[in-house]
Amino acid sequence: MALLEVRDLDVRFALRQGEVRALRNINFTLDRGERLGLVGESGAGKSVAAFSLLNLIAKPGYIAGGSIRFDGQELIGLGERRLRRIRGNRVSMIFQDPMMTLNPVLTIGEQMVECLKAHRRIASREARAIALHKLQQVQIPSPETRLDQYPHELSGGMRQRVIIAIALLLDPDIIIADEPTTALDVTIQAEIMTLLLELCEKHNVGLILITHDLGVVSQVTQRMLVMYAGRVIEAGPTREIINDPQHPYTQGLMNALPQMATPGSHLNQIRGSMPPLSQLPSGCAFHPRCDFVTRADGSERPACSRQVPDFVASGNCRVACHMVAEMLAQEAATEEDRP
């Protein structure tokens, strides 16, 4: 059985203008030690998905339905006290901005000891020793000095190392990392990502990596989900999706990258922009931007604007697209025609 199993997750925000459905029908699993990427543009719902896993959705948002099973235990509807035993302890989070996560008036050591004491009966001296050990693991120069320093005394890259050390503090099963390197420079980003990857592998920690950067996902994760307007539209092994994306949106996203085009040539842009969740078009949410609404022979594919596409299996991937479904059905039909 998978360590984490998310079924039909449905998250809504009750706003004055009416209810907005931020996530619909999110399904995925994560095995022990597996690394999963959640990819999408801003507003696709990837951060909401990560936050709702630990029921960190603030009002007016709420989880309207579905199931989140972690290690056999249902998390939806679980009391706050029981959730706290899992949060930070067995599932920890890394956020985008390290300065927001760290408490500015406590030293690094105090914050780490506080975190350990909240979850374990442990003497301060022992907690400090564990904290020091974790700081050594994230390769911070002179870790003893850092324990007594305040967050503002550290550089951005070092702060993010401290955050990773805190995330690893209680030997969690899963780390959820929400854009962990977006605020950092390229060379620092590469260092932090390599470090995170090595530590997850070494300690067999599962990773849910939320990012908009396809390059990072391709290097770090084994499986990925592509999100658009609150839904997963393509899911499967990272390599396969990167090498051969099936959904027109994933294709568009890949083709829009400058490294996919010959220098100086026109980039393949996706026209328009992602609709706000309160004004989703009917049918497939991507259809107003999609080039495949009309078939190759020029005829319309009416389902695109009328019906939300179901997932179809294409190789090891799942794709929610009428065009892909139609092509697969045609392929299957020609297979049958053959004797």
């Binding site: 120069p141 550089s155 890259g157 070092m158 390229v186 060379t187 980003q189 590469a190 260092e191 990502m193 390599t194 990857l197 950067d213 396809l214 390059g215 990072v216 391709s218 290097q219 770090v220 390599r239 990167i242 890949m254 990258l257 490294q259 996919m260």
Partner: peptide
């Protein structure tokens, strides 16, 4: 340090210090 789509594993040249 650029994350490339082609390789499976980042191989950045590690710079020491800040």
């Amino acid at each position: 340090a650029i994350p490339r789509l082609e390789d499976d594993r980042p191989q950045p040249i590690r710079l020491t210090g800040e």
